[in-house]
Amino acid sequence: MDWDDLRIFLAVARAESLSGAGRRLGMDASTIGRRIARLESSVGAALFAKTPQGYALTAEGARLVAPAEAAEQGANAAAEAVGREAGLTGQLRIGAPDGCANYLLPQVARGLCAAHPGLEIQIVALPRVVNLTKREADMAVAVSPPDTGRLTVQRLTDYRLHLAAHDDYLRDAPPIRDLADLRHHRMIGYIPDMIFDRELDYLSETGVQSAAITSNSVSVQMQAIRAGAGVGIVHDFAIPFAPGVRRVLPGRVALTRSFWLIRHADDRASRRLSLLGDLLAHGLRAEVARLESQVAGPSLRRP
């Protein structure tokens, strides 16, 4: 059985669609469909059933997943052995919440690519937890450790968040001397029913019950704050990217959260992915420290 056909089979199984598999593999959906049809003909069984939700594995397809994944691990090991002397090469897809993806990973990726010119880094910014079981990414940064799945978890670094607003907003708005004063201000935060992790429920720690401007994206929230639309909680590491935005009540509202590096348990034997994970962890720690050092004032830990 051809490994390239198995590679396409796994991509469809994980994406549950031809178009999703095509995006991951850099192939058009019609080609993916022809290759799946060819594989089904060679094994003499239908591997997928087309449903309104996409392509679902049949019983025969489900039985093929484990052997296909074993072939994938063997192919990856062979690629590592061949490329070991040439340094780190190939594609690395990193999933991350959009705050990390927008404000940290571009600089970390720049450093990794500069040190390893044969490396191709893809950054997937998602307002939800990245599904490594479906291989949406090779590794993921998360804001809390998962409690299910065959995954390995590594604590990366703590990061800090504070209330913040733009000078233009603060100049014309009522003064903010205490948390009670926030009731006189336009608040910015997450859409409540789209908070995918309890660690992102920042405003509840200020006593604020609702916000006037909300988004499922922390980057959109920061842009609203930068536009002078109101007050919200932002990452300290994002403030250097927003001239005119400064912290508000830093001695009263100071949150600490953590980033975690998540990998599929089957990848522990991969020397390449382990090394890339170590380099990613080091880069993220250094970048958080560098950016947070540019934000003046005390940094208090969450009680």
Rank of each mutant, 00 (worst) to 15 (best):
D2A: 05
D4W: 08
D5V: 04
D5R: 09
L6S: 06
I8G: 01
I8H: 04
F9W: 11
F9Y: 14
L10V: 05
A13C: 14
G26S: 06
G26Y: 01
M27S: 08
D28K: 14
A29M: 04
R35P: 02
A37E: 12
L39Y: 06
E40P: 08
S42F: 07
A45P: 12
L47Y: 09
F48T: 11
F48V: 10
F48N: 04
F48C: 06
A49E: 13
A49I: 04
T51Q: 14
L57V: 08
E60S: 10
A62V: 01
L64T: 11
L64V: 10
A70Y: 00
A71K: 10
A75H: 11
A77Y: 06
A77N: 08
A78N: 10
V82Q: 14
R84K: 14
Q91G: 13
I94V: 14
P97V: 07
P97W: 03
L105S: 00
L105G: 00
V108F: 00
R110N: 08
G111P: 06
C113D: 03
A114H: 14
G118W: 07
G118I: 11
E120R: 14
A125L: 01
L132A: 02
K134S: 12
A137M: 07
M139V: 07
A140K: 03
V141H: 01
V141S: 00
V141C: 01
V143Q: 08
S144I: 05
D147E: 06
T148A: 09
T152M: 10
V153Q: 09
L156M: 13
L156Y: 02
T157H: 08
D168P: 01
L170G: 02
R171W: 08
D172A: 15
P174C: 10
L179V: 15
A180P: 02
L182P: 13
L182K: 13
H184R: 08
R186K: 09
M187L: 15
I188N: 10
M194V: 03
E205D: 11
A211L: 04
A212K: 12
S215F: 06
S215C: 12
S215R: 07
S219C: 10
V220G: 02
M222T: 06
M222P: 05
Q223D: 13
Q223L: 09
A224F: 02
R226H: 10
I233Y: 01
I233W: 00
V234N: 03
V234S: 09
V234P: 00
V234K: 01
D236Y: 00
P240I: 12
F241C: 12
F241P: 02
A242S: 08
R247T: 08
V248N: 02
R252E: 13
V253R: 00
R257T: 07
S258R: 11
L261N: 02
I262S: 03
A265G: 15
D266P: 05
A269G: 13
S270P: 02
R271N: 10
G277P: 02
D278T: 10
L280T: 03
A281G: 13
G283P: 05
E287G: 02
E287T: 04
L291G: 03
E292Q: 15
S293L: 12
G297S: 11
S299A: 10
L300C: 11
L300R: 14
